[in-house]
């Protein structure tokens, strides 16, 4: 257990105590806890985010649920643009379902302190495309960018340049 505890993030108890569904951590050994947290994402922050460990490294992986994102015209007032159904295949209670918009813009924001220090991270956009989806083919890429704000050393090069992504 002493060895396995070293593989867990320093603040793992704080994270577990904030889980949406109580994790019986006291009944688990540190090894069991490590496997539980790497095999099965833990919903945190009222269920708006999920927390998981990368099994090979013990590094933190955070996923923001759609409700945690800022989606243009996705505030629920215009369900003919965006709808908020329940999705049994999602770890989150609700997903954002796009019906059609003329301007697609999504922002996500999180505290970098939630992540493992001194670690190289990749940000992914996770989605499903229906068979009849359109507007996402090779001729219609989207712009994507990851930025890090407010670094103590003022290094604004800590983020990647804008790139084109192809959902289709």
């Amino acid at each position: 257990d002493v060895l396995w505890e070293k593989f867990l993030p320093a603040d793992y108890q704080e994270i577990i105590s904030g889980a949406l569904h109580l994790l019986p951590s006291a009944a688990l050994s540190e090894k069991e806890l490590y496997y539980r947290l790497s095999d099965d994402p833990l919903l945190i922050d009222g269920g708006s985010k999920s927390f998981q460990l990368e099994k090979s490294s013990g590094k933190k992986c955070i996923m923001l649920g759609a409700k945690e994102l800022a989606i243009s015209w996705g505030d629920g007032k215009t369900p003919w643009y965006w709808d908020w159904p329940r999705c049994p295949g999602s770890r989150f209670a609700q997903v954002a379902e796009l019906h059609g918009v003329w301007w697609l813009e999504i922002h996500g924001k999180m505290e970098i302190q939630l992540l493992s220090p001194n670690t190289f991270y990749v940000a992914h956009f996770v989605f499903k495309l229906r068979d009849d989806a359109y507007g996402f083919d090779d001729y219609e890429p989207m712009k994507a960018k990851v930025e890090v704000f407010g670094r103590a050393d003022g290094d604004t090069n800590a983020c990647s340049k804008e790139r084109l992504i192809y959902l289709g």
Binding site: F120, V122, H124, I165, L167, G168
Partner: peptide
């Protein structure tokens, strides 16, 4: 950057990277 299969019908695409130093 192209989307790829993630499992169970989900797709993922790399939006960018950063170093949490």
């Amino acid at each position: 950057y192209f989307a790829r299969e993630r499992g169970n019908g989900w797709m993922e695409v790399e939006m960018g990277h950063f170093y949490n130093g």
